[in-house]
Write a protein that binds this DNA or RNA. Structure first.
Length: 888
RNA sequence: GGGCGUAUAGCUCAGCGGUAGAGCACUGCAUUGACAUUGCAGGGGUCGCAAGUUCAAACCUUGCUACGCCCA
């Protein structure tokens, strides 16, 4: 197969992906091999591929393909997440578009509609992951609500309940009035907004005066249960224990002493609304109120409802808490106006308020007193903390450990129930008295309750993250003890963005250790966010997102992937820089053309992992370069330095292989006829190119597979090739020889450019006092020096003229006679500059060596190196000085 | 208020104790010979500021400044 003249990524991407998938390439049968496992963070089934997925999945694919090339039984588990809230919202929005709403349907009908939607439109992202080249095990694609996984979720719930680690409790939750469900602390975003601080006077019961309170939530006074003052606040000491007659409701409430009241803030006295404020809830408990006694004054949509004492005036009932768009009246406005009318509004101040918002709905969160299910996260967190401390889990980069510990050590009970329809329905049943029975099936619950008891199932569903926390083992067949589970748990690595460290990673650690008695993964690799070119966060609302599929269309998946790897340095976000993606497309093109060159010269694939035997210096040198590249690459893999991997392979391909090696072995043209490449170079070049393709394959899977097959008949695809083990060493003599050649050619080109001598000018070089090794090198490398350096011949005698250009290469001074074309002043200034550079380094080294403390205290290697470098620089400066003198 | 991170060439970033690097951009030159999605050559940096440790600091320590993120 002849390699096309132009590299067209789109043409090969579709072809090879389909081939890999059709042949089961992502999951070769390797029962005897060492397992290697990554589970993919399941994207939302509603989702489409964004640039963050592109980064996350590229990194995983690099690791998986590398492991597969190492011969491991590499498993990359893939699937999608039912994403409770997000998916329900999508389907509800579709209903809205048809003037319908969820509650027009029964629960079962609605859920059927969601499944229908999921079958038709869900999973768009899985096709897009394929376009990126991700080598996941699609044959075992999972869904967090498929039957087996659901079984695991239910089992976990029941076991945690039976172990006392999951319980039902009445306490304040973060209630989202937009979505009408409870959400967890993590789903609340605190933002600063401009608000007001209202100062009210509350009359004392005995008519002796007033106590001032200030609040940012005036409407909640309808459910006030106390006024708190700081116990150390002498201004109010005499009032503690007295009562206040609350305006509007006329409720009699006590003045209590509590540390929560800050004497510095406002008047120092605060109103206490235990049913609608997290701090007040604690104050209320300390004041002796039980949660069940605390007043609730709002419904699930944030409208006023009557408190249990029936004291809220009827005109307030049904008013929204603080007015949303289209609501002309609201409880807040009414309360403030009423207080003003009563002469009890002291003043109103502007104030910046920390306000909680639901991260999905954007609504202001209402602390609301309800019964919800909670996981005892504190207990589960302890072994997960210990796992990181002991090194059982290695967090990379390490700097995230502190964040992990800080969160885990202060973890709060996790509210896992959601008032939604789409999700895993909670396996709890209630009898008529509200007694609860938790079991894996209704029959089992009935058995617990007794046959004649009528049971109603808890309508709520579980937090999506409750189920995805089980991903590392739930996808492998648990609770059944499958061989997959046995072989692939613990997973080797988890790759995730740091933004889901708490949401997902930490919870996987907790659940995995609790249920499997082993950590879910040995390494947790956290990467940053992909930001817009200006450094801002990408978001649909800002309209500054970059579509990875657009980048794939334009530059190819390989280029995008290489960009992601090259930019992924630990502990840093990635700023989108499209010019770099273009640069890596150019890199792919370079490789493509190098392969075309190889093919046109009869170079084909190799048949050996071991480096071929070679006599020629250039071949021994390039084999050594492969050896060095493999070593550096292996080190970078061991350290998860994706940027380092990309850097190493890039320079190997571009600099060593294309710019020098191929040029050095390129057959000469003689009388317009192209010569033939020597047999040894053909074999070595074929081997080197194969090693490059294999090393590059994890990063650029498509082009490498294409070229792999284009260059020879292969017994297997490159996706199943063997990672390089050259079984060779760096040959110091070859390195010296090729370095001499490269240096001579570079310096010759350089002086021509600087002296305005046409690069094509063919010259004769003179070395008056060559080192014996130099003569031998020149004999062997004459053809390369001629073709690349345009040096026709070498003479080993002094030149007659002073009109010369001179370069110093190693220990040799190479002189070019240039009568009639050289500008001697330019040459003098060029050499003077070179002398200055060498002398500066020489003197710096001399200064260091003359410092007694350096020689005494520095590491011996450092001293030795300084001596050697000094000698070299001194000799170079001396040779250059002599060269300058020769110009007259 | 607590924690974390980042400040290096015009831009995007490596380097993290022994003489400042890459890609892109820029300048000059080249061109029938794998490659203009090219080649060759080159210009460009008191490594945010200050003090300290060290024979030696972009790199370690402390402080400061600026920006960003997370938690309260």
């Amino acid at each position: 197969m002849t390699i096309d003249k132009t590299f067209d990524p789109a043409a090969i991407e579709a072809k090879w992906y389909a081939h890999w998938e059709a042949t089961g390439a992502f999951r070769p049968e390797r029962p005897d091999a060492e397992p290697y496992t990554i589970v993919n963070p399941p994207p939302n089934v509603t989702g489409s591929l964004h640039i963050g997925h592109a980064l996350d999945n590229t990194l995983q694919d690099i690791l998986i393909r590398h492991a597969r090339l190492q011969g491991k039984d590499a498993l990359w588990v893939v699937g999608t997440d039912h994403a409770g809230i997000a998916t329900q919202m999508v389907v509800e929005r579709q209903l809205n578009a048809r003037q319908q709403k969820r509650t027009d349907f029964t629960r079962d009908e609605f859920i059927a509609k969601v499944w229908e939607w999921k079958e038709e439109s869900g999973g768009e992202i899985t096709g897009q992951l394929r376009r990126l080249g991700c080598s996941m095990d699609w044959e075992n694609e999972r869904f967090t609500m498929d039957e087996g996984f659901s079984k695991a979720v239910i089992k976990v719930f029941v076991e945690l309940y039976n172990q006392g680690l999951l319980y039902r409790d009445k306490r304040l939750v973060n209630w989202d009035p937009g979505l009408k469900t409870a959400i967890s602390d993590l789903e609340v975003e605190t933002r600063e907004i401009n608000g007001k601080f209202w100062h009210f006077k509350y009359p004392l019961e005995d008519g002796s005066g007033f106590i001032s309170v200030a609040t940012t939530r005036p409407e909640t006074m309808l459910a006030d249960m106390a006024v708190a003052v700081n116990p150390s606040d002498e201004r109010y000491a005499h009032l503690v224990g007295k009562n206040v007659r609350l305006p509007i409701t006329g409720r009699l409430i006590p003045i209590v002493a509590d540390e929560h009241a800050d004497p510095e803030l406002g008047s120092g006295a605060v109103k206490v609304t235990p049913g609608h404020d997290f701090n007040d809830f604690e104050v209320g408990k300390r004041a002796g109120f039980k949660a069940s006694e605390m007043f609730n004054m709002l419904d699930g949509e944030g409208r006023v409802v009557q408190t249990s004492d029936g004291l809220i005036p009827p005109e307030y009932i049904g008013q929204y808490r603080f007015g949303i768009e289209g609501e002309p009246t609201n409880a807040r406005k009414m309360v403030v106006e009423a207080m003003d009318a009563l002469g009890l509004l002291e003043k109103v101040e502007d104030r910046v308020i920390q306000t909680p918002f639901g991260d999905r709905s954007g609504q202001v969160i209402e602390p609301w007193l309800t019964d919800q299910w909670y996981v005892d996260a504190e207990t589960l967190a302890q072994p997960a903390i210990e796992a990181v401390r002991s090194g059982a889990i290695d967090i990379v980069p390490k700097s995230w450990e502190k964040t992990y510990f800080n969160w885990m050590e202060n973890i709060q009970p996790w509210c896992v129930s959601r008032q939604l329809w789409w999700g895993h329905q909670i396996p709890a049943w209630f009898d008529a008295d509200g007694k609860c029975y938790v079991a894996e099936t209704e029959d089992a619950a009935q058995a617990l309750a007794g046959t004649d008891v009528e049971l109603t199932r808890d309508p709520d569903v579980l937090d999506t993250w409750f189920s995805s926390a089980l991903w590392p083992f739930g996808t492998l067949g648990w609770p059944d003890q499958t061989t997959e589970l046995d072989r692939h748990y613990p997973n080797d690595v988890l790759v995730s963005g740091f933004d889901i460290l708490f949401f997902w990673d930490a919870r996987m650690a907790m659940q995995g250790i609790h249920f499997m008695k082993e950590v879910p993964w040995k390494t947790l690799y956290l990467h940053g966010l992909v930001r817009a070119a200006d450094g801002s966060k990408m978001s649909k609302s800002k309209g500054n997102t970059v579509d990875p599929l657009g980048l794939i269309d334009q530059y190819g998946a390989d280029a995008l992937r290489f960009f992601m790897a090259a930019m992924e340095s630990q502990g840093r976000d990635i700023k989108m820089d499209e010019s770099r993606v273009a640069g890596y497309r150019n890199f792919a093109t370079k490789l493509w053309n190098a392969a075309r060159f190889a093919q046109s010269n009869g170079i084909g694939g190799s048949h050996s992992i071991n480096a071929p035997k070679a006599q020629l210096a250039v071949n021994r040198w390039i084999i050594g370069e492969v050896v060095g590249t493999v070593e550096k690459l292996n080190k970078a893999f061991a350290e998860f330095r994706f940027d380092g991997m990309a850097d190493v392979i890039y320079h190997m391909v571009f600099d060593q292989f294309c710019d020098w090696y191929l040029e050095l072995i390129k057959p000469a043209f003689v009388d317009g006829e192209k010569g033939e490449m020597d047999a040894e170079s053909m074999i070595v070049a074929g081997w080197v190119l194969d090693q490059i393709l294999v090393m590059l394959h994890p990063f650029m899977p498509f082009i490498t597979e294409e070229l792999w097959h284009a260059l020879g008949d292969r017994p297997y695809d490159i996706i199943h090739a063997k990672w390089p083990e050259p079984n060779a060493t760096v040959d110091a003599d070859a390195v010296r020889e090729i370095d001499w050649v490269i240096d001579t050619i570079s310096k010759t080109r350089s002086f021509k450019a600087e002296l305005n001598i046409p690069p094509g000018a063919r010259l004769t070089a003179n070395i008056a006092d060559p080192q014996p090794s130099t003569i031998a090198i020149i004999e062997r490398q004459a053809a390369a020096l001629s073709r690349l350096g345009r040096i026709d011949s070498f003479a080993f005698a002094p030149v007659e003229t002073n009109n010369v250009a001179q370069i110093v290469v190693g220990g040799d001074t190479v002189v070019y006679a240039l009568d009639g074309i050289i500008d001697l002043d330019a040459e003098r200034s060029r050499i003077t500059k070179a002398i200055e550079a060498a002398a500066k380094e020489r003197d710096a080294l001399a200064g260091r060596l003359s410092n007694a403390s350096f020689v005494e205290k520095a590491k011996p290697e450092a001293v030795e190196k300084a001596r050697a470098d000094h000698a070299e620089k001194a000799a170079e400066a001396e040779r250059l000085t002599a060269a300058l003198a020769r110009l007259g």
